[in-house]
Structures are given as structure tokens and as C-alpha cells.
Write a protein that binds this DNA or RNA. Structure first.
Lengths: 220, 220
DNA sequence: GCTAAAGGAGAATGTTATTCTTGTCTCGAC
DNA sequence: GTCGAGACAAGAATAACATTCTCCTTTAGC
């Protein structure tokens, strides 16, 4: 694999020099990456979809195509980065919001309803949790979605565990149940806001919560 | 809107003549459409995605691009047709499978677990219920998805209503609850089969059913 | 048989992502 | 202070598609 016989002594001083020389470059790179990210975020907010072109991102960030492909493997990676970011932020928000309540079950209710609201397609802007990209990703690379969901799943698992500990509910496998709750909240939010041609209005956050509450406690 | 003053008498005989002359054409058109549909279905099964090109569909169906665009508004419509078809078939299968059981709740269990299995990404072929296209559609045109879901929703609503009638469970708004159950089963199926980098194996059909069962009965 | 619509073959167009080319600039090494 | 390497800008080139268009040929109904 790495047979390099003409490399006798690992030059230590050289490494340090290189490292020093590298640090600055890394910083610059991160700034550039952030500029791409910001520009893309703006475009998504403005256009309401992820249909922007790479050109647009490049122009808005005042950088170059060359640079873009030097920092990202492609548009896909850019979107993936934004997606993970959004979910991590969402998890943080939920953790923050739930800290207000005292009772574990109440906390869980807040979490479910907040996640539901966050996942709902907003009137103006595009919900970052659920863009068309997120959907494609789910179908094409579910593993990456699973990874991105991790922060949220951790929050929900924690909440479910607390609820079980306090005896407010039971759930044999908290993480599994948390996963179900989370996904139910996120996905069912998608189909709301539809004019609903024939059948009545879509489900509400409260209905979702009640459904999940029943699900947590197990059939009975 | 429809002001056509130069159309004095609605020529009845003519209409019949046109209709007769039209029937055959309609049949031919339907055959061609079906050939496109079949070809596309094959390609999806083979490639596992909806990434086939229109060219491929045209070649496989031994027709022409011209003809394709004469019958479909675009690739989008072709996929939408396949999607609706698949969901309608799924609804029929579920109706069939549930007819075996006697107890309403048992029927519902069968329905949930079958829908879950149908929605799961199969090893070889692509689940028609949940292609990447279905995801994009959900994000871009939720109303069309809602329409396509209707047959399934009808089946589930019916099952929930029966379960409520028989006193096996309660549910204030059967259609709402049916919608939640259906979506939970379909969506949670998507994230299974993932190698699961860090956390344990994904949820099973049984777990989904238990979760839904609790949800149906309402929190308690 | 005649005519108009439908169909076939494939070229033309337009949009994007992605890669490649060329010249410029910056920054640390000496 | 200058040199050289790598980062970068600008944008041309490429490639993959969907969609449309053109020019014929076939066909179905009269």
C-alpha cells in the first residue's frame, strides 16, 4: 500500500513548518466554504426551492466555479451540509424549548409539536428540514439522512427515557419509539397545508401529539 | 368565457359520428400509453431508480419521442401515472389481504404491516410506492400526492371505522387517524434497511403496528 | 384512392452540472 | 525583496437530459 522506501527520516521540523503553513490555508478555506453556504441559504430562502444553479451560488458569494468544486464535491455535498446544519439547529431549538417545562411528558409534547411546526411547509420560505432535496436524499441515500437525523433522535430519545423513568408512560425501547415519534411528526407535517380537494382539513399538531402519545404508551 | 356566436345548432348527428370515429383512436392511444408505462416500469425495476431517460423509455417501447410527448405532458406525468397506479394496486392488495381476517383490529394490523412491507425499499427492485420521485412529488406537489393516496386512505379509513364500531378501539376522527396510521407506516418504512452506522437495527413491522395501535386508541 | 391525423427518425435547442484552461495574485520561504 | 507554489477568478468546453421541431411515412376513416 504505502511502500515508500525513499523516505528514510520523518523530518519533524518540516512537519511543524507545514502545519503552520497549513493552518492559515485551512482558515481561508473555511471562510470560503461559509460564503458558499450562506449564499446557498439565501437563494433557498428567496426561491423557496433548492433549484438554484451552482452558478448563482458562485455569483452571489463572489467566488468562482473553480473554487466551488475545489471545496465541495458537487452541489449534492453543499445541500447535504445545509441539511445537516438545519437539523442540528432544529435539535438545539427543541432542546431549548423543552427545558421550560417541568414534567417529562409535557416536554415531550412541546418537542413533538415544535418539530411538527418546523417541518411544516412555511408560507413564504422553504422549511429547511424538508426541502425537495431532503426527500430525494431519503430515497437515494437513507444512511446520510439517518446520520443527519442523529442530533434530533438523541433529543427525542432522551425525552422519552425521562418520561419512562418518571413513570408517566412506558416504552420498551426508548430509542425505537423516539425514532417513530420523530418520523411521524416530521413526515405527517408534510401533507398539511394542502388545499385538500375532497376530504376535510389536514391533521393538526395536537392530533399528531395525541397519536404519538398513544403510540408511546403502547397499545392498550 | 365560451362565447361562440357562430355555433347556432349543436349538430347532434355529427357528434355521434365524431364519437364513433374517436373511439378507435382513443383505444389506439391507450395502447400506446400502456406501452410507455410498461417500458418505464421495466426500467425502474431494472435500474432501481427513476433516473431513466425519456429516450430509453421510447426505445424500449419501440415508439418515438414525438409520440411520447404527444401522449404525456412530460416525464413528470409519466411518473405520476405510474405512482398513482402503484398506490391503487397497493390499496387493492391490502383490501384483499385484510379480507381474510375476521376481527376488525386484526384486519387493521394486517393492513399496517402489509403497507409497511410494501413501502420498504426492496433489496433488488425499487418499491413503486416510494421512489425518489414520490419524494420529490411530496415536496413539490403535495396535492397530487394526496390525490394518489386517496385509494389507500379510503381502505384505512374503512378499517378504522369498523374497528371503532366493533368497540375494539376508539378514535374520534377515523379519517384523520387513518391518515396518520397510513403515513406512519409508509414513511417509517423508508428508513429501515439502513446499515445503521451507530445505533441498533431499525424498527420492525410489529413495532410500527404497536405504535399505531396505541395511537389509534388515543393517549391513555 | 384520398386526406388528415398520427407516428417515426432524429436533428436542434436550452438548461445545468461538472471539468478544463489560462492568467493573476497572495503568502510564506529564503 | 524576490521566487515559486498553490489558491483563485473568469469563463470556455463538455456532457447529459428534457423538450421541441422538421421532414417524411403510415394509416384509418371516408
Amino acid at each position: 500500500m504505502n511502500a515508500v522506501p525513499a523516505e528514510p527520516a520523518p523530518p519533524a521540523w518540516r512537519q511543524r513548518a507545514v502545519e503552520r503553513s497549513t493552518r492559515a490555508a485551512k482558515l481561508r478555506a473555511e471562510q470560503r466554504i461559509q460564503r458558499f453556504l450562506d449564499a446557498a441559504q439565501e437563494l433557498i430562502a428567496e426561491k423557496g426551492t433548492t433549484d438554484f444553479t451552482v452558478q448563482e451560488v458562485v455569483e452571489r458569494s463572489k467566488q468562482s466555479l473553480r473554487s466551488f468544486y475545489q471545496h465541495f464535491d458537487g452541489k449534492h455535498e453543499l445541500l447535504l451540509a445545509l441539511f445537516e446544519d438545519a437539523l442540528a439547529k432544529s435539535a438545539a431549538e427543541i432542546r431549548e424549548a423543552t427545558s421550560a417545562a417541568k414534567k417529562p411528558l409535557e416536554r415531550l409534547r412541546i418537542a413533538v409539536e415544535l418539530l411538527y411546526k418546523q417541518s411544516q411547509p412555511r408560507p413564504g420560505k422553504q422549511s429547511p428540514l424538508f426541502t425537495d432535496f431532503a426527500m430525494q436524499l431519503l430515497a437515494a441515500h437513507p444512511a446520510q439522512v439517518a446520520t443527519a437525523h442523529m442530533p434530533l433522535l438523541d433529543v427525542f430519545t432522551e425525552l422519552v427515557e425521562k418520561a419512562v423513568e418518571s413513570g408517566d408512560t412506558r416504552a420498551a425501547k426508548p430509542r425505537r419509539v423516539a425514532s417513530l415519534v420523530m418520523q411521524t411528526a416530521m413526515f405527517t407535517a408534510q401533507t398539511t397545508g394542502v388545499p385538500a380537494e375532497s376530504h376535510a382539513t389536514a391533521v393538526t399538531a395536537e392530533e399528531v401529539w395525541e397519536f404519538c402519545l398513544g403510540g408511546i404508551s403502547g397499545g392498550s
